[in-house]
Write a protein that binds this DNA or RNA. Structure first.
Lengths: 230, 230
DNA sequence: GTCTATAGTCGGATAGAC
DNA sequence: GTCTATCCGACTATAGAC
């Protein structure tokens, strides 16, 4: 078993910190492109311009490096949605918030995820979010932290909003299902295949807005239907 | 480069056919569980109760075996939706089909996909559909046939229905986007992670119906909203 | 058609000099 | 901290007996 990522951190001096960073960035790209097995430490070292043993030195092992990459992505994801879920939380705390406001918060959350997945100006955007898809497939325990972030910082806050609209607790099965389906519409945008299917090479601001508008429309349509059926 | 899968087929006699089948079934399970790199030919041979060189003998190479597995899944997928898309096609051919009928066909298609992904009585259900998720991630050319089946037999027929509802051609960007989002709600059910998130170990008929009812509700809600906005 | 034995390759990790 | 050289295990694929 490995030590937790952050404990394995030789080199506090500037020189080592730079090497460490270069390895991490390269690993993100290569793990994203080829998966854990597909990316060899030799490749990573070569592309990063460091020597092979540097990986062992800085991250203990290949798996340690992988875990470090995952932790990085998880942090970024949590940070991005933090202000949105904080606003949603405060809204739900006030008693009897108007229905329209709850729906607005759900739309805002969904919008933020779309922006996060599609904003091409963010460095490493595509590489980063490929891992969100990978969680579904590779059942390594190393990916659990990312799964946890998704559940706690996105799925659960969304379920609280949907639950309120349905008049049920957030862990109710039907609430959970509906939440997953709404998020499913959005999750497709962290996949390469979908972009290829659309013929989108690059994504400009106009396209992000188009997607956001459409996701909003769907989400509102679903929420409207919720009123009757519960 | 390898010969196409179906050309590599020694043994028409009963004994060989059985061996071939056992390898194929085992490979499906192990590739599904561990991916292409993660499943070794040694493992497959051992679990199938055959010798290592049998894989080369029947499928030419490990990749040949992988392609054979993919072809099998693609055929099953196409067969499952065939009657539904045939009915939808005939509906669209008649001039001016009622709006409600077009929506019904879209719902039927979506229902069928849900049933296909969730029906636990089908042998190898879970193993089979894991690959549908894998297409998004692994960008091996070997997975292309499965991607093609999805696009031609599911995505495109769905887009034709959505396009009719929006009064636009099926290859219009907005039509395509909307179709992808509607299918996104459903596609989440071919992932292990989602089932784990719901705490569903087994899936009985009641659960399939619950999901179908909800997907239907969402799809109809979205289609209803389509009328105004186009 | 089925099998044993083995060739040939590659990848992760380490030893130890500087 | 960085590097060269090397070990060792695992893998795919093949040769050739039966």
């Amino acid at each position: 078993m490995l030590p937790p990522v952050n404990r394995y951190r030789p080199a506090a001096n500037p020189r080592g910190e730079d090497t460490r960073r270069r390895i991490l960035d390269t690993a993100l790209a290569l793990f994203a492109a080829n998966g854990f097995d597909g990316a060899s430490t030799r490749d990573i070292a070569e592309h990063a311009g460091v020597n092979l043993p540097a990986i062992q030195y800085y991250f203990g092992s290949k798996e340690g490096l992988y875990r470090a990459v995952i932790a990085l992505i998880g942090e970024h994801l949590a940070q991005t949605v933090a202000p949105v879920i904080e606003r949603a939380r405060r809204c739900l705390e006030s008693d009897a918030p108007p229905r329209a406001q709850v729906i607005n918060h759900l739309c805002e959350l969904v919008d933020t995820i779309v922006a996060m997945f599609l904003d091409d100006t963010l460095p490493d955007r595509e590489n980063r979010y490929i891992f969100v898809s990978r969680v579904e497939i590779e059942d390594t325990e190393a990916l659990d932290p990312l799964h946890d972030v998704w559940r706690e910082h996105i799925q659960f806050p969304a379920a609280k909003l949907v639950g309120r609209l349905m008049g049920r607790p957030p862990d109710d099965e039907k609430v959970l299902l509906r939440t997953l389906m709404i998020l499913g519409q959005v999750k497709i945008f962290c996949s390469r295949a979908v972009m290829r299917g659309l013929g989108w090479q690059a994504i400009d601001e106009a396209r992000v807005r188009t997607v956001q508008a459409m996701v909003n429309e769907h989400t509102r349509a679903i929420c409207r239907a919720l009123k009757g059926s519960a």
